Amino acid sequence: MMRAAGAWFLATAVAHGLRYAALVWYADRLAPWWLEALTTALVWVTGIVAIAVGIAAAVTATAWLVEMRRRAYAPVRDPRSRAGLWVGALLVVVNFFRLPVYLEELRRASTRAPSRSDLRRWWAAWAVNVLAVTVALWRGSGEGPQAAADTVLLTALAALAAAWAVRETRGVMRSFSDPSPRFTRRFIAAGILEASATRKD
């Protein structure tokens, strides 16, 4: 689902990019009806599907977070309630501040986890996405053809930022299943020392 969300966000960016190119090319003359219809349809279809798939991906990622925290804290219970995790992860604006906390707690409780720099990069990707969406919505409230064209371009950039954020999210999710570098280095070093001691004996 996460991969599908990233693909549809990229498709949305391409569709809006084509729409913006058509608006710029025909800025001083009337565009052909078929081009107007085609680019408009692409924008609407990819946008609606991307939103639907994005919501499904958010639900999937939240379910993953709840399950991974349950496993990390086992055999004791997760100190945070399942309902609280779902609300904090899915509620817009709130999740921007709560998700980093949930992931940092999971990172500390898990034996396999990403580094803090990976989590910071993930958070930065989502921050850029939120900023891009906010600017696009603000520009969309304007009037006139220039405001409409700017909104199309900004939406394309927001979709690209969303695709980047999804990519970083997938990376974080995978890292909780892969051996952490700090543990890997520790085990490799321990293995080398043990092998050396065995050879000496």
Rank of each mutant, 00 (worst) to 15 (best):
residue 60 T to Y: 08
residue 58 A to C: 09
residue 90 L to D: 03
residue 30 L to R: 14
residue 5 A to P: 03
residue 80 R to P: 00
residue 67 E to L: 14
residue 13 A to Q: 00
residue 66 V to L: 14
residue 80 R to Y: 08
residue 74 A to W: 15
residue 22 A to H: 05
residue 30 L to V: 14
residue 50 A to G: 07
residue 49 V to M: 02
residue 33 W to A: 13
residue 16 H to L: 02
residue 61 A to S: 15
residue 30 L to S: 13
residue 82 R to K: 11
residue 52 A to L: 15
residue 87 V to R: 04
residue 34 W to S: 10
residue 68 M to F: 03
residue 80 R to L: 13
residue 53 V to N: 05
residue 68 M to I: 03
residue 19 R to K: 15
residue 79 P to E: 08
residue 24 V to T: 13
residue 72 A to T: 04
residue 45 V to E: 04
residue 38 L to R: 12
residue 39 T to A: 07
residue 28 D to C: 01
residue 50 A to Q: 01
residue 2 M to C: 14
residue 53 V to H: 06
residue 60 T to L: 08
residue 47 G to I: 03
residue 23 L to H: 06
residue 32 P to R: 12
residue 42 L to M: 13
residue 2 M to L: 15
residue 64 W to P: 02
residue 44 W to Y: 10
residue 80 R to K: 10
residue 91 L to F: 15
residue 42 L to D: 01
residue 53 V to A: 09
residue 54 G to Y: 07
residue 32 P to D: 13
residue 49 V to H: 02
residue 59 V to A: 09
residue 83 A to L: 14
residue 18 L to G: 03
residue 47 G to L: 02
residue 44 W to S: 08
residue 73 Y to D: 09
residue 23 L to P: 00
residue 91 L to E: 03
residue 8 W to S: 03
residue 81 S to E: 09
residue 53 V to I: 15
residue 36 E to F: 12
residue 85 L to G: 00
residue 64 W to Y: 12
residue 61 A to M: 14
residue 71 R to A: 10
residue 34 W to V: 15
residue 85 L to R: 05
residue 39 T to C: 12
residue 28 D to L: 05
residue 90 L to R: 04
residue 41 A to M: 12
residue 2 M to I: 11
residue 42 L to N: 07
residue 84 G to D: 05
residue 44 W to A: 12
residue 27 A to W: 12
residue 75 P to M: 08
residue 51 I to M: 15
residue 36 E to V: 13
residue 23 L to E: 11
residue 57 A to E: 13
residue 71 R to P: 01
residue 22 A to W: 00
residue 52 A to S: 14
residue 70 R to F: 04
residue 5 A to K: 01
residue 12 T to V: 01
residue 18 L to F: 05
residue 13 A to I: 00
residue 39 T to F: 12
residue 28 D to P: 00
residue 5 A to H: 06
residue 42 L to W: 05
residue 2 M to K: 10
residue 11 A to E: 01
residue 61 A to E: 11
residue 56 A to T: 11
residue 2 M to D: 13
residue 54 G to Q: 04
residue 6 G to F: 01
residue 34 W to G: 04
residue 91 L to S: 07
residue 42 L to Q: 13
residue 84 G to H: 07
residue 58 A to N: 13
residue 56 A to R: 11
residue 8 W to R: 01
residue 33 W to Q: 14
residue 50 A to H: 00
residue 81 S to W: 05
residue 86 W to E: 07
residue 42 L to R: 07
residue 72 A to E: 08
residue 85 L to A: 11
residue 24 V to A: 09
